[in-house]
């Protein structure tokens, strides 16, 4: 169970789960772009529904586990891979045979992980754990999560940071999505060609989507 293949399987499966999660996450975030009168109530009632659903509670734990396992096993793989190439080339033009992203998934992943710590501190810790500044209630008595996002994205530094981080996110997703399928053994030739295109579309939607929401909210 500790074979290299098993580790790759864990990273691929958790990666695909996280890819699916991001679709739901981004879809919900689009509510933030509606006019405020609609957005606040809709977003708050949506997040209350999520918090109170027993099914979502289970999925939330799966999500935490997926993030930790993905990072942990990716780290194990990276350390072992480094050991497999102890001496580097004096001259290496790897950009001529592969993309920069594919050569630096570990670095990009680490940047995203660091962002995630801040992101969880911004939202999850305040809303779910009640750490930090208290979150108020809206007119319907739901926790005012919209206000948390609205306030955060009226701080220009956070807007810039959240927008910039969507670039490594998009790159990571582009390489990760198509590679996960190959790691799991998907080798249908036409299917892989389609998958390559789907990965680009998916990564662009995720990158642009998550990147543009803070900007639009800032100007609201």
């Amino acid at each position: 169970m500790n074979s290299l293949f098993f580790r790759k399987m864990v990273v691929a499966l958790t990666g695909l789960f996280l890819c699916t999660f991001l679709i739901v996450h981004l879809s919900a975030n689009f509510i933030l772009l509606l006019p405020e009168s609609m957005a606040r109530e809709l977003y708050n009632s949506y997040s209350t529904t999520l918090r109170e659903s027993p099914l979502i509670k289970i999925i939330a734990y799966v999500l935490y586990a997926a993030i930790l396992l993905h990072a942990f096993y990716a780290l194990l793989i990276t350390l072992r891979n480094r050991k497999a190439k102890p001496e580097k080339y004096v001259v290496n033009h790897s950009n001529e045979n592969s993309t920069w992203t594919s050569q630096n998934m570990g670095l990009i992943g680490t940047i995203i992980l660091l962002f995630l710590v801040l992101h969880l501190a911004n939202f999850w810790a305040r809303i779910k754990l009640g750490i930090g500044e208290e979150v108020g209630l809206d007119a319907l008595g739901n926790r005012d999560v919209y206000e948390v996002a609205y306030t955060l994205f009226h701080n220009i530094y956070y807007v810039i940071f959240y927008t910039l981080i969507s670039i490594p996110l998009g790159l990571h997703l582009h390489h990760g999505l198509k590679s996960a399928f190959k790691s799991l053994g998907f080798y249908h030739k036409k299917g892989l060609q389609l998958l390559a295109k789907v990965s680009v579309i998916y990564a662009v939607i995720m990158g642009v989507g998550f990147g543009i929401i803070p900007i639009i909210v800032y100007f609201k």
Partner: peptide, 16 residues
């Protein structure tokens, strides 16, 4: 694996 080779991360350099 026991020979000490690393994992494939699909950079695609090999096929080039």
């Amino acid at each position: 694996e026991i020979e000490g080779f690393g994992s494939c991360t699909f950079t695609g350099a090999c096929e080039v």
